[in-house]
Design a protein around this nucleic acid. Structure first.
Lengths: 210, 210
DNA sequence: ACTCTAACGCAACATGTGTAGCGTTAGAGG
DNA sequence: CCTCTAACGCTACACATGTTGCGTTAGAGT
């Protein structure tokens, strides 16, 4: 993600730590609107030009923060039922999207200004959805849903309404939203929705970007 | 939406027309990134200061454009079946989100920079979803789906995956996406998802924010 | 036709954002 | 310990963005 540091020793690493910490601190304390290269640099004693050179813009900073956040050991919830798993997952998404300070929303906003932030966020979500595929596999293993159910399609159906309502439609946070959407999706899956169209036994996620 | 013009006559109206036309022209010709107060003003012979005073920022300009666009006579498709209506609707959404120039995406991006654009977009979508409620009503009238199906919830379920995949996840435009999502949603609705829950006013699960 | 003033045009200013040149410093490699 | 240079700090600049004060103009009201 970040430019390969040819000299990763003490100083450069220290600068990176201080800058990224300052980004999060700034985000938490003063919100996204107050986030700029200058405020971050001033907030951690690193010079403006250094930050500009290494991260280029605010999107670059958030992309780096996101790249760090993506390398965690998060695993999807395992409650024993599809309904339970989706509901628990959706509650996490809901919490992230309505949390204060709105870090997730800030990252989404940044992704519209910086292609680097956009790519980092895309990669982050791709990884998360891949990890969540086991939820669908487990449900199929328990014969809750038909075999051959398209995991990604089901997971997007379960989570997309949350993003849509909270981020794009900007509806007020409705406490039941996460659970309702999860339940609707589970009903759909049991009724045979999200059936993978037969292409070939070994599915490859061919992702052509325009 | 826009500030009430105390003097709506010839000159002010003419300025507004020229500015809004220039916004669309700029958007079509050079894309969203090239859209700024200065380029718009220069592109239509109106002075910078005038545009700044009346619209404040780019978000204000797009909000005004959007307010005009919302006052049209658009009606949701009527194909005779729920599947057909949702598929036709989703194809429209798909076309809007993948269209070039990416006007819709530009408006969404602007909504993260300007509260006025955000509010205009929210109002626009609220109106569109209201108009689409007849799709659900017709389906219920034909007994395709249970009476008491929550129209908005169904419509969001049908369209949200498109916005999620194309706008947030930035997946490549998949030709079958619109139809598949519409079909999945129709299956869900027939299976009894989106049932409006009769909820007592004081039933809220404490939303857990971390 | 006359008046009054909202809205406009203009110049000058203030600030925010990003870049370029150049000397300095610290850490990687011997 | 010594050298070499990537990365840093600093100054100065270039440009974009947004504001202020003031004179001018056109159209709404009578």
């Amino acid at each position: 993600m970040n430019r390969p540091t040819r000299r990763p020793g003490g100083r450069s690493a220290d600068v990176r730590r201080r800058v990224l910490d300052a980004v999060v601190a700034q985000l938490v304390d003063h919100g996204y609107d107050a986030l700029s290269i200058d405020t971050v640099a001033a907030g951690c004693g690193v010079h403006r030009t250094t930050v500009y050179r290494r991260w280029r813009d605010v999107g670059g900073l958030l992309a780096d923060v996101l790249a760090e956040a993506a390398a965690d050991d998060w695993r999807p919830p395992d409650t024993g039922t599809l309904d339970g798993d989706l509901a628990a997952l959706n509650r996490e998404v809901f919490a992230a999207l309505t949390g204060d300070p709105p870090i997730t929303t800030a990252l989404i906003a940044a992704s519209f200004r910086s292609t680097r932030a956009a790519e980092a966020l895309r990669a982050f979500w791709a990884d998360r959805y891949d990890r969540c595929a086991v939820i669908v596999a487990r449900a199929a293993g328990r014969s809750e849903i038909p075999a051959g159910t398209d995991a990604r399609r089901l997971l997007v159906a379960a989570t997309a309404p949350l993003y849509h309502e909270l981020v794009l439609l900007r509806a007020g946070p409705d406490a039941g939203l996460a659970d309702r959407t999860a339940a609707d999706t589970a009903v759909a899956a049991r009724a045979g929705a999200f059936a993978a169209t037969v292409v070939s036994p070994d599915e490859h996620h061919g992702d052509d970007r325009r």
